Simulated scan of single mutants.
Amino acid sequence: MISQQSWTDARRLWDFQQMGHEVRPCSVAIGLGSHDLGVAEVTAALYRDGMAPVVVFTGATSRTTRERMPRGEAEHYRERALELGVPADAILVEPNARNTGENIRFSRALLAQQGIAVSSVLLVSKPYEERRAYATARKLWPDVEWVCASAPMSFSEYVAAIGDEHLVIDMLVGAQQRLMVYPDQGFMIRQEISTDVETAYRRLVDDGFTSRLVPTAVARD
């Protein structure tokens, strides 16, 4: 049973993760692999709207995707985009990345190999990982402009679409924790985090939403 306080805290983290960028045409769109095919659908919609002439789907498999996406996240994303009308010659597949940093680094290398000049990137992620993805991308590829995009859904709508409220809250907590600890490890730029956001995160950890935390989350300093 999820308490009302936990729901409130999860919504606070959800809102914080939203970057609020205005979508505009960019050199390329990069769809970050995950368990959520909605990322591929948003990326395909952006392509059809003329927001990017080429799409990169990036991602191998993880513990949450190896059963539902056995051919790899990027390949399943490609298949969904083809179903939605994106032409095959507009899609590049990066099948090896296993975390957000590798998503960015491997996509950058692939685009360079293809001779595609990049000055701006539409970075498409799950709604609750916009800020985490942005902070990582800015650290690893600082000389391009990043515009974040995700499915325009409320927290309640997203939970209903995924069908597993504990998984969504665990993922939110994991994304927030990485924003707090990864800058010191050199994995992303530092983001200003308000006291109410950090308090919401701490309460959710205390309430047991910890399955997506990296080991340092146990420390409470």
Rank of each mutant, 00 (worst) to 15 (best):
L140G: 13
V118Q: 08
D164L: 09
V121C: 09
V118H: 09
V118A: 04
F155D: 00
V181T: 13
Y134L: 15
M171C: 05
E102P: 14
A135L: 08
D184P: 10
F106I: 07
M153F: 10
E129R: 13
E145M: 06
S150E: 00
E102M: 12
Y134I: 08
S125A: 10
M188V: 03
I104A: 00
E192T: 13
I116M: 02
D143I: 10
M171Y: 09
L123C: 07
R190A: 13
Q191C: 07
V118Y: 05
S154R: 12
D143F: 11
V173D: 02
Q113R: 15
N96G: 02
A112T: 14
L111F: 06
K139A: 13
D184I: 00
F155N: 03
G174E: 00
A135E: 00
I104M: 00
L179H: 08
E145T: 15
N103M: 01
A137D: 03
Q177R: 04
S125R: 05
V168K: 06
A175R: 01
L123W: 06
Q191N: 04
S107L: 02
E165L: 03
K139H: 14
S150A: 15
P142S: 15
V159Y: 10
L123E: 04
E145H: 12
Y134E: 03
A151K: 11
P152G: 05
